[in-house]
Amino acid sequence: MESTPIIDVDPFDLPEWLGVREVVWHADQGLRSGHLVAGRIVAGDDVLGCDLLAVDEAYPAPVTDDDSRLRTHQAWRHGQVLLGRYGDRLVLAVPGTGFDADRVLDTLARLARAVGGSPDNMAALLRIGAERQTRR
């Protein structure tokens, strides 16, 4: 089975507001949903789809190719996060097989630095469950 590679995205190709305004990453799924957590970054009326991808999940098949995993681990080791396209979505790729609150916050702080912003301008709205809850 062929795995999906991560195509690098230059942080400076992202919208400027990402580095200068207060933004909130909203989880559209619970952190327990697995190696890929769908989400979006919101600042006022501006919205950017942005998922979190843990690249080391390998069962039943690797989630990405070896080169993408290597680049992800190298970026993380140097205090950065790999920004890329995974399929048709923007992702923040991190080492590991899943997410907890600390990993999400660390990832967002690295994103802030990548776009020339301050981690103090980043916030996260997390979901705990394994599936997205519908509003009633």
Rank of each mutant, 00 (worst) to 15 (best):
residue 87 G to F: 02
residue 54 A to P: 12
residue 135 R to C: 07
residue 21 R to E: 13
residue 127 R to D: 08
residue 27 A to Y: 01
residue 82 L to C: 07
residue 6 I to E: 04
residue 31 L to H: 03
residue 11 P to R: 06
residue 3 S to P: 12
residue 98 G to L: 04
residue 132 R to G: 14
residue 45 D to H: 13
residue 73 H to D: 06
residue 92 L to T: 02
residue 116 G to I: 04
residue 41 I to V: 15
residue 115 V to A: 11
residue 31 L to N: 03
residue 88 D to I: 02
residue 98 G to N: 00
residue 3 S to Q: 09
residue 43 A to F: 09
residue 113 R to T: 09
residue 125 L to N: 12
residue 98 G to H: 04
residue 67 D to Y: 02
residue 110 R to A: 07
residue 92 L to C: 03
residue 28 D to G: 06
residue 19 G to K: 01
residue 97 T to K: 12
residue 99 F to E: 00
residue 24 V to N: 07
residue 73 H to A: 15
residue 54 A to R: 13
residue 12 F to N: 06
residue 26 H to M: 14
residue 50 C to I: 02
residue 101 A to S: 08
residue 20 V to D: 02
residue 38 A to E: 07
residue 52 L to N: 04
residue 28 D to M: 09
residue 103 R to F: 00
residue 16 E to I: 05
residue 44 G to F: 09
residue 51 D to P: 07
residue 33 S to N: 13
residue 61 A to Q: 11
residue 34 G to W: 09
residue 131 E to D: 12
residue 12 F to V: 10
residue 1 M to W: 10
residue 72 T to N: 06
residue 18 L to G: 10
residue 58 A to Q: 14
residue 136 R to G: 12
residue 24 V to S: 04
residue 34 G to R: 03
residue 38 A to R: 15
residue 3 S to N: 12
residue 78 H to K: 12
residue 118 S to Y: 03
residue 111 L to G: 03
residue 100 D to T: 00
residue 91 V to E: 07
residue 57 E to I: 06
residue 116 G to C: 05
residue 130 A to L: 05
residue 47 V to N: 10
residue 50 C to E: 04
residue 129 G to L: 13
residue 111 L to N: 01
residue 33 S to T: 12
residue 80 Q to E: 15
residue 101 A to K: 05
residue 87 G to I: 10
residue 100 D to L: 01
residue 40 R to G: 14
residue 49 G to M: 06
residue 126 L to N: 04
residue 117 G to V: 01
residue 28 D to C: 05
residue 136 R to K: 00
residue 80 Q to G: 05
residue 41 I to N: 09
residue 17 W to S: 12
residue 94 V to Y: 01
residue 47 V to C: 14
residue 22 E to D: 15
residue 67 D to C: 08
residue 66 D to E: 14
residue 18 L to T: 12
residue 78 H to C: 11
